[in-house]
Protein backbone atom coordinates (compact mmCIF):
# COMPACT_ATOMS: atom_id res chain seq x y z
CA UNK A 1 0.00 0.00 0.00
CA UNK A 2 2.81 2.38 0.95
CA UNK A 3 4.45 1.89 -2.41
CA UNK A 4 1.15 2.57 -4.21
CA UNK A 5 0.64 5.77 -2.20
CA UNK A 6 4.11 7.03 -3.10
CA UNK A 7 3.54 6.32 -6.80
CA UNK A 8 0.18 8.08 -6.39
CA UNK A 9 1.82 11.22 -5.01
CA UNK A 10 4.33 11.45 -7.86
CA UNK A 11 1.75 10.67 -10.53
CA UNK A 12 -0.62 13.25 -9.03
CA UNK A 13 1.98 16.00 -9.20
CA UNK A 14 2.88 15.41 -12.84
CA UNK A 15 -0.71 14.92 -14.01
CA UNK A 16 -1.77 18.01 -12.04
CA UNK A 17 0.78 20.07 -13.95
CA UNK A 18 -0.47 18.58 -17.21
CA UNK A 19 -4.27 18.63 -16.84
CA UNK A 20 -4.75 21.69 -14.60
CA UNK A 21 -1.79 23.64 -16.01
CA UNK A 22 -0.86 22.83 -19.60
CA UNK A 23 -4.42 22.00 -20.70
CA UNK A 24 -5.68 25.28 -19.20
CA UNK A 25 -2.93 27.31 -20.86
CA UNK A 26 -3.57 25.58 -24.18
CA UNK A 27 -7.27 26.49 -24.07
CA UNK A 28 -6.33 30.00 -22.92
CA UNK A 29 -4.11 30.18 -26.02
CA UNK A 30 -6.99 29.20 -28.30
CA UNK A 31 -9.14 31.78 -26.47
CA UNK A 32 -6.87 34.55 -27.78
CA UNK A 33 -8.15 33.75 -31.28
CA UNK A 34 -11.80 33.67 -30.15
CA UNK A 35 -14.11 36.72 -30.16
CA UNK A 36 -12.97 39.31 -27.58
CA UNK A 37 -10.06 37.04 -26.50
CA UNK A 38 -12.43 34.70 -24.72
CA UNK A 39 -13.68 37.35 -22.31
CA UNK A 40 -17.27 36.94 -23.44
CA UNK A 41 -18.99 38.25 -26.58
CA UNK A 42 -19.88 41.94 -26.30
CA UNK A 43 -22.47 44.20 -27.91
CA UNK A 44 -21.72 47.91 -28.26
CA UNK A 45 -24.26 50.67 -28.44
CA UNK A 46 -23.73 54.43 -27.95
CA UNK A 47 -20.26 53.76 -26.54
CA UNK A 48 -21.61 51.40 -23.90
CA UNK A 49 -20.55 47.77 -23.80
CA UNK A 50 -22.82 44.91 -22.82
CA UNK A 51 -22.34 41.15 -22.53
CA UNK A 52 -24.49 39.90 -25.41
CA UNK A 53 -25.34 36.62 -23.71
CA UNK A 54 -26.17 37.96 -20.26
CA UNK A 55 -29.82 38.88 -19.91
CA UNK A 56 -30.70 42.29 -18.48
CA UNK A 57 -33.61 43.43 -16.41
CA UNK A 58 -36.05 45.45 -18.55
CA UNK A 59 -39.01 46.65 -16.50
CA UNK A 60 -39.61 50.07 -18.11
CA UNK A 61 -42.87 50.31 -20.04
CA UNK A 62 -40.98 51.80 -23.02
CA UNK A 63 -38.81 48.69 -23.44
CA UNK A 64 -39.62 45.13 -24.37
CA UNK A 65 -39.62 43.57 -20.89
CA UNK A 66 -37.53 40.53 -20.08
CA UNK A 67 -38.65 37.45 -18.15
CA UNK A 68 -38.97 37.41 -14.36
CA UNK A 69 -35.70 36.43 -12.65
CA UNK A 70 -35.00 34.79 -9.32
CA UNK A 71 -31.73 36.74 -8.99
CA UNK A 72 -32.96 39.99 -10.50
CA UNK A 73 -30.51 39.69 -13.42
CA UNK A 74 -27.46 40.28 -11.24
CA UNK A 75 -24.85 38.18 -13.01
CA UNK A 76 -22.52 38.19 -10.00
CA UNK A 77 -24.48 35.03 -9.24
CA UNK A 78 -27.15 32.98 -10.99
CA UNK A 79 -30.17 30.96 -9.97
CA UNK A 80 -33.69 29.78 -10.69
CA UNK A 81 -36.67 29.96 -8.38
CA UNK A 82 -36.57 26.18 -7.82
CA UNK A 83 -40.28 26.30 -7.07
CA UNK A 84 -42.13 23.06 -7.65
CA UNK A 85 -45.02 23.06 -10.14
CA UNK A 86 -47.67 22.48 -7.45
CA UNK A 87 -46.33 24.90 -4.83
CA UNK A 88 -49.32 27.13 -3.83
CA UNK A 89 -47.08 30.08 -2.95
CA UNK A 90 -45.49 29.87 -6.38
CA UNK A 91 -48.82 29.62 -8.20
CA UNK A 92 -50.06 32.71 -6.31
CA UNK A 93 -46.94 34.57 -7.44
CA UNK A 94 -47.52 33.64 -11.07
CA UNK A 95 -51.14 34.80 -10.78
CA UNK A 96 -49.85 38.12 -9.43
CA UNK A 97 -47.48 38.48 -12.40
CA UNK A 98 -50.37 37.79 -14.78
CA UNK A 99 -52.51 40.44 -13.08
CA UNK A 100 -49.65 42.97 -13.22
CA UNK A 101 -49.09 42.21 -16.89
CA UNK A 102 -52.77 42.73 -17.66
CA UNK A 103 -52.72 46.10 -15.90
CA UNK A 104 -49.59 47.21 -17.78
CA UNK A 105 -51.00 45.94 -21.08
CA UNK A 106 -54.72 46.70 -20.85
CA UNK A 107 -55.45 45.69 -24.47
CA UNK A 108 -54.19 42.15 -23.93
CA UNK A 109 -56.33 39.21 -22.81
CA UNK A 110 -54.96 36.59 -20.42
CA UNK A 111 -54.89 33.82 -23.04
CA UNK A 112 -52.47 35.88 -25.13
CA UNK A 113 -49.79 35.94 -22.39
CA UNK A 114 -47.09 33.38 -23.18
CA UNK A 115 -45.95 31.31 -20.18
CA UNK A 116 -42.31 32.43 -20.45
CA UNK A 117 -43.34 36.05 -19.71
CA UNK A 118 -44.62 35.12 -16.24
CA UNK A 119 -42.19 32.36 -15.23
CA UNK A 120 -38.57 32.70 -14.10
CA UNK A 121 -35.75 31.17 -16.15
CA UNK A 122 -33.29 28.54 -14.95
CA UNK A 123 -30.26 30.80 -14.74
CA UNK A 124 -32.10 34.00 -13.82
CA UNK A 125 -30.05 35.57 -16.63
CA UNK A 126 -32.04 34.43 -19.67
CA UNK A 127 -31.14 36.82 -22.50
CA UNK A 128 -34.12 35.71 -24.61
CA UNK A 129 -37.87 35.87 -24.76
CA UNK A 130 -40.11 33.98 -27.15
CA UNK A 131 -41.36 35.69 -30.29
CA UNK A 132 -44.90 35.65 -28.90
CA UNK A 133 -43.69 37.38 -25.76
CA UNK A 134 -42.32 40.23 -27.85
CA UNK A 135 -45.47 40.53 -29.94
CA UNK A 136 -47.71 40.68 -26.91
CA UNK A 137 -45.90 43.84 -25.76
CA UNK A 138 -46.24 45.71 -29.07
CA UNK A 139 -49.47 47.57 -28.26
CA UNK A 140 -48.08 48.95 -25.01
CA UNK A 141 -44.77 50.10 -26.49
CA UNK A 142 -46.50 51.64 -29.51
CA UNK A 143 -48.57 53.75 -27.16
CA UNK A 144 -45.74 54.76 -24.82
CA UNK A 145 -43.33 55.63 -27.64
CA UNK A 146 -45.96 56.85 -30.03
CA UNK A 147 -44.76 54.58 -32.85
CA UNK A 148 -46.86 52.69 -35.39
CA UNK A 149 -47.48 49.08 -34.38
CA UNK A 150 -46.45 47.96 -37.87
CA UNK A 151 -42.93 49.34 -37.35
CA UNK A 152 -42.58 47.38 -34.12
CA UNK A 153 -43.86 44.21 -35.78
CA UNK A 154 -41.21 44.64 -38.47
CA UNK A 155 -38.55 45.25 -35.84
CA UNK A 156 -39.51 42.01 -34.12
CA UNK A 157 -39.37 40.15 -37.42
CA UNK A 158 -35.88 41.54 -38.14
CA UNK A 159 -34.64 40.56 -34.68
CA UNK A 160 -36.12 37.08 -34.60
CA UNK A 161 -33.38 34.47 -34.36
CA UNK A 162 -34.34 31.47 -36.46
CA UNK A 163 -33.71 27.89 -35.28
CA UNK A 164 -30.14 26.64 -35.79
CA UNK A 165 -29.72 26.00 -39.55
CA UNK A 166 -33.46 26.61 -39.77
CA UNK A 167 -33.97 23.11 -38.40
CA UNK A 168 -33.02 22.69 -34.77
CA UNK A 169 -34.45 24.29 -31.65
CA UNK A 170 -36.90 27.10 -30.94
CA UNK A 171 -37.18 30.58 -32.45
CA UNK A 172 -36.27 33.33 -30.03
CA UNK A 173 -35.50 36.99 -29.53
CA UNK A 174 -32.52 38.56 -27.76
CA UNK A 175 -34.20 41.22 -25.62
CA UNK A 176 -31.09 43.41 -25.45
CA UNK A 177 -30.59 43.51 -29.23
CA UNK A 178 -34.27 44.20 -29.77
CA UNK A 179 -34.30 47.08 -27.29
CA UNK A 180 -31.10 48.58 -28.72
CA UNK A 181 -32.75 48.50 -32.14
CA UNK A 182 -35.90 49.95 -30.59
CA UNK A 183 -33.96 52.91 -29.15
CA UNK A 184 -32.52 53.62 -32.61
CA UNK A 185 -35.96 53.56 -34.25
CA UNK A 186 -37.21 56.96 -35.31
Amino acid sequence: MKNYLWIGVKLTLITLVFFAGIYTLFILGIAQMAPNQGKGIMTESNGKKFYSNIGQSFTDAKYFNSRPSAVNYNAAGSGGSNKGPSNPEYLAEVQKRIDTFLIQNPEIKADEIPADMVTASGSGLDPNISVKSAKVQVKRIAKVRNIEEKKLQDLIAQNTEKPLLGLFGPEKINVLQLNIALDKLK
Binding site: K83, D111, P114, A115, D116, V118, P170, K172
Partner: peptide
Amino acid sequence: NGNPALTQMGIDTTSGATEGKEVRFGAAAS
Protein backbone atom coordinates in the same frame (compact mmCIF):
# COMPACT_ATOMS: atom_id res chain seq x y z
CA ASN B 1 -47.51 20.23 -22.59
CA GLY B 2 -46.79 22.72 -19.85
CA ASN B 3 -47.91 23.08 -16.26
CA PRO B 4 -51.69 22.38 -16.03
CA ALA B 5 -51.93 24.72 -13.03
CA LEU B 6 -50.75 27.60 -15.23
CA THR B 7 -53.00 26.56 -18.11
CA GLN B 8 -55.89 26.83 -15.67
CA MET B 9 -55.01 30.47 -15.04
CA GLY B 10 -55.91 31.03 -18.67
CA ILE B 11 -52.49 31.91 -20.10
CA ASP B 12 -50.84 30.55 -23.24
CA THR B 13 -48.73 27.52 -22.23
CA THR B 14 -48.03 26.22 -25.75
CA SER B 15 -44.30 26.81 -25.22
CA GLY B 16 -44.38 24.23 -22.42
CA ALA B 17 -43.45 24.27 -18.76
CA THR B 18 -41.20 27.32 -18.85
CA GLU B 19 -40.44 27.76 -15.14
CA GLY B 20 -36.73 27.08 -14.62
CA LYS B 21 -36.10 26.78 -18.37
CA GLU B 22 -34.21 28.93 -20.83
CA VAL B 23 -35.99 30.22 -23.94
CA ARG B 24 -33.02 29.39 -26.19
CA PHE B 25 -33.31 25.65 -25.45
CA GLY B 26 -37.07 25.28 -25.14
CA ALA B 27 -39.08 22.63 -23.32
CA ALA B 28 -38.13 19.67 -25.55
CA ALA B 29 -34.35 20.06 -25.32
CA SER B 30 -34.62 20.77 -21.59
